[in-house]
Amino acid sequence: MTSTILQTKHLFKHFDGVKAVDHLSVSFEKGKITSIIGPNGSGKSTLINLLTGLVPLDAGEVIIAHSLHFTRVKSHEVAGFGLTRTFQDVRLFEQLSVLDNILVVLTERGVFASLFETHGTLHLAQAEEVLKKMGLWEKRHSLAINLSYGQRKLLEIARVLAMTRSARTGRAADIIFFDEPFAGLFPEMRKVVVSVMKELRAEGRTQILVEHNMELIRELSDEVVVLDAGELLAQGVPNEVLAKREVIEAYLGE
């Protein structure tokens, strides 16, 4: 029994006349890992940016868990819907310590209440758990800017994990977008990320992955969505979709 948790209807976005996302209607199943693939410029990252409020929609509708509809969303609201994400171009709080990068997503969001709160032992315990999981606990006092590229990617994933542990925004994150989390990672680091994603699936969380590496896509995905020029080209289980002629053509540019 599957159920749709996130659905878009006729989503539309253009930049200076170029259609980045073109009347895209796609749905994502609860508790699954869905990979979005497609050539460069096919609208994968734009789709994530639209769904997390970083870029405003031109038209269309987003439905979360059948009940919550929106056509306009501000980025500070999406965390309250249980959405969180990583960024393709790693976006950390560079001149903050590794620990502070995690604590900041665990602590109070209200202006007044946050003035009278210092991070408590609960926050610290949660931060310790996610940082240890990503192998960054030893680095907790370094500034994020001083980490290696791979460690920076792992810190972003730790931040997402922290969002799944805390309901400070009204709801712990249960829909997670990973925008190319494996790019530039060493094999050992990839293994860590793969196991984290499998754990998140076991916890019943929905994951949407943008990735180019076919091996990883086959290993992780329950479903694959193929985009081309902002349109939905195919959707289904990996083996079927990846064998389709039009998918191969779109990817190889034949």
Binding site: H76, V78, T84, R91, L92, V104, T169
Partner: peptide
């Protein structure tokens, strides 16, 4: 301090 570093990213994590 997080606002100083990346305001837009912080918003995604639920900060006004």
């Amino acid at each position: 301090k997080a606002i100083r570093e990346d305001e837009e990213a912080l918003q995604v994590f639920g900060y006004r």
